[in-house]
Write a protein that binds this DNA or RNA. Structure first.
Length: 309
RNA sequence: GCCUCUGUAGCUCAGUCGGUAGAGCAAGGGACUGAAAAUCCCUGUGUCGGCGGUUCGAUUCCACCCGGAGGCA
């Protein structure tokens, strides 16, 4: 008997938070956040992290589990998320995995294996240096030698993936391709029902634009000032803070910074949609202009959900 | 009122000595297994202001009209 798991995916600002809470209220669930930036403590306004009021008493896991100066990766995430899901199940509650970080959602629901600890930061830095000094081409050729399948899959300009593939091989002696093959054969303990929140593109963009304005009103600038010196690596990738830094350094006006944030967020939403669209297992619900209870009514009516099968 | 410049992609603009057009930005599509709010790849979307004229053929030349900018009054 596999563990039932409900997944809620969708682009930023599509209403995932409220829908997840509403589902949890109706079905005795707890929320497991799948958001690569909301894991950081203190990054609240800029990541649109759910507030206490929005949570309505529903426990939320995987929020505030790292400090802004710490690196954090899918590997860290899956370990914590799988643990949280187990705990929720042990309490007899329904785990609801909700968020916008596609890789995190996939890593958990497909039970990808990151347990072996095959990363090496200094090796990665060394490869980066090589790429910078001699060009990425030389690394791509290396990859083509040791793991032609990965080389074919990865674009010759995609430095990050080329380096990672080389790193995996150098650390473990096993190619990325073999790793993935092995991971794919690992059975998932979850019986996942995947819901995607669709949203009219233009209206979603309007919501994003307005949300950024609200973030500014709520004190994004102050939050950025407070965290600026602490954010590095992973956390500084977050949209909202790097643009604010431009403003704080006097390199951009506040209006320009705000527009940069809006644009970056819109593009991010677009990439999220592309990522989720590619998964045929996702059942889509149009959330445009709907309240959370309305959306959940529709989800409740679906066949195959943990409470309806 | 007169003179000059100007109107081309969502924006800023280039261009065609007459053969229906292209850059940057914006946008759209796609990939994605340890940085994923990251990273990478692909794509020009257009009554060339309007209506006539000349021409085999007009976005290009001519006339007029409409809209902008500047100058003289």
């Amino acid at each position: 008997m596999k563990q039932p798991l409900l997944m809620i995916a969708g682009p930023t600002a599509s209403g995932k938070t409220a829908v997840a809470v509403e589902l949890a209220l109706r079905h005795g669930g707890e929320v497991v956040s799948a958001d690569s930036m909301q894991v950081y403590r203190g990054m609240d306004i800029g990541t649109a992290k759910p507030t206490k009021e929005e949570m309505k008493g529903i426990p939320h896991h995987l929020l505030d589990v790292a400090e802004p100066e710490q690196p954090f990766s899918v590997a860290d995430y899956t370990a914590l998320a799988n643990k949280a899901i187990g705990d929720i199940a042990a309490r007899g509650h329904l785990p609801i995995l909700a968020g916008g970080t596609g890789l995190y959602l996939r890593a958990v629901t497909d039970y990808l294996d990151f347990s072996e600890g095959n990363s090496d930061d200094s090796l990665r830095a060394e490869l980066q240096k090589t790429a910078q000094e001699q060009g990425i081409g030389i690394l791509y050729e290396q990859l083509a030698q040791i793991d032609p399948q990965s080389a074919e899959r990865i674009h010759p300009n995609d430095e990050k993936r080329i380096i990672r593939a080389l790193e995996v091989y150098r650390v473990t002696g096993i190619t990325m391709t073999e790793h993935q093959k092995k991971a794919a054969s690992r059975p998932s303990p979850y019986d996942t029902f995947r819901v995607g929140l669709a949203y009219d593109r233009q209206k979603l963009y309007d919501r994003i634009n307005r949300r950024v304005t609200r973030m500014l009103e709520m004190g994004l600038t102050e939050e950025a000032i407070e965290l600026m010196d602490r954010m590095q690596g992973t956390s500084f990738q977050s949209i909202g803070y790097k643009e604010m830094e431009q403003y704080l350094k006097g390199e951009a006006s506040l209006q320009e910074a705000a527009e940069q944030i809006r644009r970056a967020t819109r593009r991010y939403a677009k990439r999220q949609m592309t990522f989720f669209r590619a998964d045929p297992r996702i059942v889509w619900i149009d959330a445009t202009d709907k309240t959370a209870p309305q959306v959940v009514d529709e989800i409740d009516g679906l066949q195959g959900t943990p409470w309806n099968r």
